[in-house]
Amino acid sequence: MTIVELYNKLHAAYSPENLNEISGQLIQLYKTKNYTAIRGLVNKISKYVNIDEENDAKCFSKLIMLYHPDKGSTIHNQLKLLHEGNDYEKLQNYSHIFLLADFDVRAASHTIQTMEFDAEYIWDTDTEEGYSFTDEYGEESFEEPEDNAFERSFFNLLKIREYGRTNIELPTYYLQDFEDFEMAESGLESLDGIEYCIHTKILDVSNNTLTDISNLWELQHLEELYLANNQVGYIDTLSNLSNLRIIDLSGNQIDDISALYELEQLEYVNLLGNPVPLNQIRMLEKKACVVCFESKSRYHF
């Protein structure tokens, strides 16, 4: 294929119509929790794009950022510059979109849908011995119940992950060393303790029962935040996180996103499933930020 042929083919592939179609189908897979199909797509384009396919929230966010219609004009300008510079190799780096040519959400919807849990740490407070956790070898350990009801906080979950029990002293300065926390589907009820993780850059606490995120205030190094499918209503705390680039807030109860207006690094926000006023979303889009939302059962890009 000549460089002219490649350029013309890419220019057509990144048309608004095609990007709208791809993004719409991706959102449909995400809303139906067909994470298996989403990870399959990530694996399909892995030759060109490096995405952590083990993290469902990241998979979807990164795919949407690649194929969001708002990216179309920017990509077309980049393709034109590469074509004019006769840079065939870099032009070919955009060819991953061709691998989605046969992508059809109707076919993907028949893929077996699985909710993958981290089997290494499963909360269980119903055992007579207290609560239990299962280690990586499938062996179960038990701890005597404490005087107070067991608190499913960030700090306690971290203790169990590191030491297998909560009745242990864990210096708070120890938490400063972590840059990436993966705690999706962990039974988290509060973020107590996260405020000490001041150097954290990536945090995934999707699919829990969180209502309060005020403990995030001090995490000013945070770049990626995945809060999908919790019970969060207020996000004023996020206004202090000046380095945020990617935020997944889908499946919550948020109706005011004004706290995001001053975040200069913001690139992507997922608001699917939240009752956010359209005028606020338009304000966010003026920042050249990719925003996913829905209104009256329609997806908007």
Rank of each mutant, 00 (worst) to 15 (best):
Q231L: 13
W123H: 09
D147Q: 15
I22Q: 01
E144G: 11
E140C: 09
E143W: 08
S15A: 05
I213V: 14
I122W: 07
N156T: 00
Y196G: 01
N243V: 02
I22Y: 02
L79Q: 05
A13H: 05
G187C: 02
L100V: 04
D180T: 15
N208W: 07
L100G: 08
S95Q: 07
L99K: 10
F98Q: 08
G187M: 03
T211G: 14
G164Q: 04
H110I: 12
K90H: 14
Q253V: 11
H221W: 10
G130Y: 02
I235F: 09
L29W: 03
N167T: 14
I246Q: 00
G164E: 08
L227S: 06
N274R: 04
S15E: 03
L158D: 04
Y299V: 00
M283P: 00
H110M: 10
K201F: 03
S242F: 05
E223K: 06
K31F: 05
L158Y: 13
R161C: 11
E143C: 12
N148P: 01
G40T: 08
V276S: 00
L278Q: 08
D104V: 03
Y14S: 01
F155H: 09
R165C: 10
Q92R: 12
Y131A: 05
G40V: 01
N240V: 07
T125E: 13
C289I: 13
A119L: 14
P69R: 03
C292D: 06
N215P: 15
Y299G: 01
G193N: 02
S141D: 06
A184H: 07
E224F: 03
N34P: 10
A288V: 09
I45S: 05
L263P: 01
